[in-house]
């Protein structure tokens, strides 16, 4: 596990579970604690009253999320937090991709019940990007598997880099960036966060940045 050590100084503990070894480093511990704390607070918070002004009126109106809608979105928020914990603790790239896709699905779920055509339109576009990006995501992992014969990060950390692995890594980067609505594919995200319900929207931002942080580590470990 040399690359993992280079990145994290030491490993707190790992669970020997066949080929797949979930491990805990100071980095992943910090991530897990962050996610847990955020998920708890986001789930406890009540949605804000969004104040809206219109031209030609001297009134400030407030709107908020309906009770039923809030219930569903809170559930999706918690689910997203659970998926994120999976993303940051897993010691196996394929599980990583699955959890990243799960994060994408729950993100879409958070916005699925918003009664706003703009938001739903953006969410739909994001869903399309997410589905397309499952090709590079799983494809990259399959390339890495074909090249090295393993998916365990602990084993991959010891395998030196080569061109095929680099292609796999690049595909993995593109895929995860698309699933998490990160930098180049984030145009829809800016549109989506127009929706009401601060705690739930914030979860989406948290999820994409956590996926991003973990992705950096995985890209360094592979190859």
């Amino acid at each position: 596990m040399n690359d993992i050590l280079d990145l994290n100084s030491y490993i707190i503990g790992h669970v020997l579970f066949g080929d797949i070894v979930p491990y805990l480093t100071p980095f992943s511990l910090a991530l897990v604690i962050t996610i847990v704390v955020f998920t708890i607070f986001l789930a406890l918070s009540k949605p804000e009253l969004r104040s809206v002004t219109r031209f030609g009126e001297d009134v400030v109106r407030t709107t908020t999320v309906g009770k039923k809608e809030a219930k569903f979105r809170r559930f999706m928020t918690i689910l997203c937090g659970v998926a994120l914990i999976g993303v940051v603790t897993t010691g196996d790239i394929f599980n990583f991709t699955l959890f990243v896709s799960l994060v994408g699905i729950t993100n879409v779920g958070i916005f699925a019940v918003v009664k706003d055509t703009h938001v739903l339109d953006a969410a739909f576009q994001y869903g399309l990007v997410m589905m397309i990006c499952s090709l590079p995501l799983f494809g990259g992992v399959a390339l890495i598997l074909a090249k090295t014969g393993t998916l365990s990060l602990g084993v991959l950390a010891g395998i030196p880099g080569n061109p095929v692995l680099n292609v796999g890594r690049m595909l993995l980067l593109v895929g995860a960036v698309g699933e998490g609505a990160l930098a180049p594919f984030f145009a829809t995200k800016v549109e989506m966060i127009r929706a009401k319900g601060a705690p739930y929207i914030n979860m989406m931002h948290l999820s994409s940045l956590m996926v991003f942080t973990r992705l950096i580590e995985i890209l360094f470990i592979v190859g």
Partner: peptide
């Protein structure tokens, strides 16, 4: 310690900025 934790902190800082803006309900912070 590991630099990756500082990267994470920067990322969470971004999330917090976002959350601070959303949580108040004002159009400017939004």
């Amino acid at each position: 310690g590991p630099f990756s934790i500082i990267i994470m902190c920067y990322a969470v800082h971004k999330v917090s900025e976002h959350g601070i803006g959303l949580a108040s309900g004002s159009p400017y912070t939004k």
